[in-house]
């Protein structure tokens, strides 16, 4: 994984949007990893479509957090920090041509709990999502996995709100078009 990340400085800064809690004491590093590993891994996995790469990114996120735990001011700050760093590392990873190879890992993992709704539709949607450009994919992941508003996504990705809105709209339209090819109206 690339370590010469030009965004390192930015990632080390606190997020103004995340409120500070007076007297906030973060849990132990072990507790934080246990509590947030699924969130961080999921963002990375949906963005990268590769479990090994996603695990690498997720591990790197937590290792960076470990050295900056004392700068975390609240639970909200912690979650915002994790989202932002995960997204940035994913973008970084997606820019690397060597490891940005197509993968077939969008389907459900064997042994996973059955998906609610139509599992085939979900798998199709993940494949269509994987074909979107990285920034649009991340915007949709943050919107529909993390349930963030466009303003919050803009803060995480450090982009203007209109850009995010536009990416979300175009991304959804491409998904609709993709489903249409499969005979699904959305």
């Amino acid at each position: 994984m690339r370590r010469t990340d030009p965004l390192d400085l930015e990632l080390s800064m606190p997020l103004e949007a995340a409120p500070a809690e007076a007297g906030f004491v973060p849990g132990s590093f072990r507790e934080i990893v246990a509590a947030h590993q699924s969130r961080v891994f999921s963002i990375a996995f949906h963005a990268l479509r590769n479990r090994a790469q996603a695990e690498d990114v997720a591990q790197e996120v937590f290792l960076r957090l470990s050295s900056r735990l004392d700068t975390i001011q609240s639970e909200a700050h912690l979650v915002a920090w994790l989202r932002r760093v995960t997204a940035r590392l994913c973008i970084d990873e997606l820019r690397r041509p060597a490891r940005n190879a197509p993968s077939l890992e969008g389907v459900a993992e064997p042994g996973e709990a059955a998906e609610p709704g139509d599992p085939f539709l979900s798998a199709h949607l993940r494949r269509l999502l994987a074909d979107l450009p990285g920034p649009a994919r991340l915007a949709l992941i943050l919107r529909y996995q993390e349930d963030l508003e466009p303003q919050e996504i803009a803060a995480v990705l450090n982009e203007p709100v209109p850009t995010i809105k536009s990416r979300l709209a175009r991304g959804l339209q491409r998904l609709r078009d993709g489903l249409k090819h499969l005979g699904v109206e959305a």
């Binding site: 590993q37 891994f41 992941i141 109206e185």
Partner: peptide
């Protein structure tokens, strides 16, 4: 279909791989 609802379903959080926390 309700695309946004289906998308939220498709993007439901994944479990981290077994032993991930220990490896971290």
């Amino acid at each position: 279909i309700d695309l946004e609802r289906e998308l939220a379903r498709a993007l439901r959080p994944q479990e981290a791989p077994a032993g991930f926390a220990e490896r971290v």
